[in-house]
Amino acid sequence: MVSAGALEQFYALFEAWGIPWIVPRLAIMLGVVSIIIGFISVSAMFLIWWERKISAHIQARFGPMRVGGWHGWAQSIADGLKLLLKEDIIPTRADRPVFILAPIVVFAASLATYVVIPFGPGLIVQDLNIGILYIIAISSLTVVGIIMAGWGSNNKYAALGALRSAAQAVSYEVPLVISLLGPLLLVGSLRMTDIVEYQGGTWLGILPGWLIVVQPLAFLIYFTCAVAETNRLPFDIPEAESELVSGFHVEYSGMRFAIFFLAEYANMFVVCAIATTVFLGGWQGPLLAPWVWFLLKTYFLLFVMIWLRWTLARVRVDQLMHVAWKVLLPLAFVNLGITGLLVLVLSPMG
């Protein structure tokens, strides 16, 4: 967004006025964080409304039609306001600090991942040279929050949900990371902008230079794991409402529940944004502005996720584990091995 030099000048200006060095840095941070939170909120609200409309049309319904006039566009805003105004209930026998902290941890984890999402050239908060690694590390923290919620609620269903969630997250992180290694071998960098710029050209002169063309298997593995990571159907067993009565957040209500809800949609956006960045060429595309391309691709993937959710049944815990360890993980390794071999053979440096 802003070049490093400009930032330095901005800080120097404040120092010249005798204001402690921490103040301008905090101000910048706060500004960025508010922009991200604003984006997450708007995007999540849109996603919720969108999902309700899509699911309604899949099910021969209309979905929200009233609030706000045109196709109930303000429904999510109304729901959010309602949740904000609700009484904050904490069960008497809950572990209060853990119970209160859990939604914050979940939300903070998904918030932090937005730092390295490349919305467009320059439209990235901090282009870390370990961008992908950072995202994977931070997004794993979500499960800590979920376990805290399950434990702190002091509810058997919540505990079961948290246990399921822990098992699921640990299992699906592994094939997810390994599936990402294939494309990263080709790119040779963990930096998000490098990954996007690598996909600028074309394959064989006709196909777009996107990594999905040469790494389709990795994309499928990644996307499956991503659906599991975000606890969406058919992998929504941590919250499975017909079994665990919504699992780890069964005791939450009002604002805290809303934060969980927000974090779920924020996470969906993150995993789809990574898929867009790594496999679908990020912001690359003709005619339209880069950030429009990025959002278009991301929202297309989100649509696929929603589509899956409303047409599939839920898998069982053991089947979930089976898929992760006995199907996805070997496939991911095969993909990684073949990619590595090809890189070794084809690369002139080989």
Partner: peptide, 16 residues
């Protein structure tokens, strides 16, 4: 039964 298995769409279709 679809609801029990997590398939909400079937529920709505059957109700139709």
């Amino acid at each position: 039964f679809g609801l029990d298995l997590g398939n909400f769409t079937l529920f709505m279709w059957c109700f139709r």
